[in-house]
Design a binder for these strands. Structure first.
Lengths: 147, 147
DNA sequence: ATCAAATGAGTGCGCGTGCACGCAAATGAG
DNA sequence: CTCATTTGCGTGCACGCGCACTCATTTGAT
């Protein structure tokens, strides 16, 4: 007989496995953007449009390596641009372009609607807040989000 | 300004991203078993030791395709055996071996300890139950994995 | 000023994964 | 019985992803 912690973990696994493909499919269907692209654009957009690879990797739930390649793809698509950091020759900035902002604003409502439908549907506001609070404890005090 | 649902989703993503590698590393360090192997053995063990690929794929959070290859690896390691289904020539059984059971029982406490530590530590019993209940709502109608 | 250590980033490589496809067996309508 | 359809599996292939490694730059101790 599974413990409470086990049950919670399995439920988390199943929830993750169910929701990620749903969101990915929905965003991609609506805008052609992979979910990972969206995430990068989101962070870039909400951080003034300019971040180093390392900062991005901290924000996005991906390895720094992956982010580096992701930025390459996004740059090839013209949604972000690579820029040198004048104060540190090692680091590189990823800067969101106007086109990137446009595509992001286009994709945002689709993603957000899907999230609200899948999470906000079954759960009340208070439940969502409680859920977030617990999950953040489990995630191990990560830096808070900025608007 | 993120909605409550957004914050919850991001927290879930971060929690998943943090915990999976931890558990995987810990189990692998302690027993040499990849986490996916453990999951297969777990389901097999708790289902009388014999399942078809399709049944396994429904249980484990993986595609049927992946399960098929996983069983191959486990069979090569001697932890499960492939067996023909006398009633249906298309389907194949995966049967856990004695050695597989032994390895599973060996790995179980390590995995469970890690879960209890990471989930049961920060969260109380009641919180865990509430968390599970909410997550199960989100996991929804346990939709079988698409392939 | 010097140089060893630390830091930020890019690359080679291999693994895990799912999709499209193919195949054989079972099913069912006629 | 016949044969088209469905079902359960396995395989070729491509992609996403992270680790180990390398390179260039910066930092800091002497």
């Amino acid at each position: 007989m599974p413990s409470d912690a086990e049950r919670a973990w399995e439920a988390l696994l199943r929830t993750h496995a169910r929701l990620v493909p749903i969101f990915d499919r929905e965003v991609q269907r609506g805008t052609g953007l992979p979910l990972t692209w969206y995430d990068v654009l989101l962070e870039l957009n909400s951080a003034g449009g300019r971040m180093t690879m390392g900062q991005l990797a901290e924000r996005v739930v991906l390895s720094r390596t992956r982010v580096s390649r992701l930025v390459d793809e996004l740059a090839r698509a013209g949604l972000v641009a690579r820029e040198a950091n004048p104060d540190d020759g090692r680091s590189a900035f990823a800067v969101i372009t106007d086109d990137g902002r446009r595509r992001f604003r286009e994709a945002a409502p689709i993603y957000l609607d899907a999230i609200d439908r899948e999470l906000g549907g079954p759960l009340s506001r208070d439940e969502l807040r409680a859920l977030t609070e617990m999950l953040e404890k489990l995630a191990g005090a990560r830096a808070a989000h900025r608007d």
